[in-house]
Structure formats: C-alpha cells, structure tokens
Amino acid sequence: MSENRAFFRETVEQILADTLDQSRIEASERRMLPAALYKALEENGVTRMLVPEGKGGIGADIGDSFAILRAMGAAAAPGPIVETMLGNKLLAEAGLEPADGLIALAFADDGAAVLHAVPWGGGVDHVLAVTPSGISLSASASWEMEAALDAADEPRDTLRGSLGAIVALDTSATLRTAAILRAGQMLGAIEWTLARSIDYAGERKQFGREISKFQVIQQMLAELAAQLLASAGIAEAAADAGRETLIAAARSRLGDAADAAIGIGHQVHGAMGFSKEYALNHRTRRLMAWRDDFGSVQFWRRRLAGGFVTCSREEFWPAIADAGNRRAA
C-alpha cells in the first residue's frame, strides 16, 4: 500500500472511530443517515476523492478509493458513499461542478420515467441517472418515492418522475467502476467478519475449552480465510487495473467469499450471531445486499465467461494467463 493510500485509509478509519457507533448504524434502518460521519467525510474531501484537483477534488484513483471503502465496509458504515464519490467523478468528467451533499446513483435508459431499487433514493440531496447517452442530475425532491428496503434494511427506493436534460458523456465504464468500488465495501465486511469470528472462537467456551480448539471450527475459519485472501488479491488488482475481465472475476470471486462469510460467521457465533443487537448482522446483511449491487454474481460470471467463449483450444490457456489485459465481452 502506497503512503498516500495508507494515509487516506487511516484518515477515514479515524473519522469512523470518532463519528460512527452501533446506535448510528441501527438508525440507518429508520432512514436516518449518520450526519456527523458524512459531514466529516465531506470536510476531508472524501466525497470528492475521484474529482481532479483542478476541479476542487483530491484527484485520487480508483485503487485509493477502494482502500477507503474497505474501511467503510469493515465499519458497516451506512449510506451512499460509493454513489456520491462516483457521482461527483462523473459530474467532473461531464464538465459540471461537483454536487454539495449526497448523491443517489441510478442506471437507467434514456427517457426513463421509473428508477428502480435506488440506494437511498429518497434520503439524499441529488439523484444522478446514468444512461447510455450520458448523465442527468436532479433534486431527489423532484421524484415521487416508493419506499423499499434491502437485506440490511437500508433504503432501496423506487423513484417515479422524469429525467432532466442529459449531459453527453461516455458512461460505458461506469457500471464496472461502481462494481469494483462496491467490492471494496464487501471486502472490508468480510475481513471484519473473519477477524471477529476468530476472536469470538477464542472467547467462547464449550465442553470446558475454547471452541477455537475444535477442529471443525478451525476448518471453517481456515476456509473463510482462504476465501478472503483469494478475493482480496484479485479485487485489489482489479481496482488498480480497472480492466473489465479482472473486475468481472473479482465480483464473481467476492460473491463466493460473501456467501462463506455469511454462513461461517453465523455458524461460528451460533445463536449470538443471529441477535440483531450483535454487530455481526450489520456486516452479513450488508453483504447480502451488496453482492448483487451493480451486477449480480451471475451477471459478472457471464461477463467473465463471455471473454473466452470464442477462444480455440490453442488460444484458451494463453487467454486465461493474460486475463488481466483482456476486455470482457
């Protein structure tokens, strides 16, 4: 990790420690965002991480943002941080000023009148619609909202209205950028789940000894650690390279790791893990929601496979070996 990247992550970890606790995480299930957290993130330039310095941002890259989002995921920080960071990036690329406040991001067709399952769609300042032709920014208050929730009981609202003027912009890479940024949050939540499961196994006693001494528990934790390490390697590479094939592989691999974290984390914790007052559920339920954000696991596996289906027998292995340089179909 570079010095700048380590500094970014340490800064955000300190902000999270100062502004986010269990009660504020739980408040998000009542559609209440942690105001102190987002005020501090905005003051420290995090919401404009991906905006060039000349346009009032930090000028960081996707890999830097990925590191920050990893910390946010580990802390189960609620709210549209990915959407706001990416939204401001798109606004800057379109020659517009970054937005003040928080942004909800929606992928839609040109002329769409309904935006489906928009994270925090009715609880932010702006809605940014990403279409094949470009982007359209509007006030969230201009949309009629039908409230809904995801697996973490955070808002996934349906918005009805009409898009404003569309500013022309090449948005072909936007979905994969959103996908790898969300992957950072997923990776952080998986890391937290493994670390807490290891600690809990060392604390919980059964039949006169810590459950961490039972072979079956050791095997489950080893399996989760392997899933984490494999996912981290490919996700970090994908964030730095930005190539479609790597991002497709990372999201596919993280889908498996998320399933392992949810299952193993709760098995190790037993009944304690299913208590809503216990911190584990805030990570595992977010993993249930995040694993299908910006393309489901199946979607990304099809994208990954699509890059190789036309290969001949002689071409297949060289193509796999050079996957990081290939463009997904």
Rank of each mutant, 00 (worst) to 15 (best):
G63T: 08
T84M: 06
L187F: 06
I103P: 01
R301P: 05
A108E: 05
L50A: 14
M145S: 10
A151P: 14
I81D: 00
C311W: 01
A258L: 09
S65L: 15
G242R: 09
S140P: 06
R156L: 15
T19F: 10
W300F: 12
E26T: 10
P155D: 01
T284Q: 03
A117M: 00
M220W: 10
L69N: 00
A173C: 04
G122F: 13
G79V: 01
G121L: 02
I81K: 00
R327M: 03
A77E: 12
A6Q: 12
I62M: 04
R303P: 03
A249E: 03
T158K: 08
V130R: 07
G307T: 08
I217A: 01
A230P: 07
E26N: 12
A329K: 13
K89M: 14
Q218C: 04
A237M: 02
G121W: 04
D240W: 06
E83V: 11
A321M: 07
R48N: 10
T174P: 09
A179I: 03
G57T: 14
I81L: 02
A77W: 05
I234S: 03
E154N: 11
Q267G: 04
G121M: 02
L37D: 08
L128G: 11
L86E: 04
S172N: 04
M49F: 05
A260L: 14
A76K: 00
L246D: 09
F207S: 13
N4D: 11
R327Q: 08
P78W: 06
A173N: 12
A257R: 13
L16N: 03
I217N: 01
G134M: 10
A178M: 13
A239R: 03
A117Q: 02
G255L: 04
P52K: 09
D199K: 15
M272R: 13
L169Y: 15
I103Y: 00
T174M: 08
A67H: 07
S138G: 11
A173E: 13
G295K: 09
A104P: 04
R327Y: 07
A305F: 13
A77Q: 11
L90E: 11
G255T: 02
Y38D: 07
P52Y: 06
L181I: 11
S136I: 05
A225K: 15
K205Q: 13
T47L: 14
F207I: 10
E315D: 15
M145C: 14
L304R: 15
S138N: 08
D100K: 14
G306W: 00
R326K: 11
D293K: 03
M145N: 06
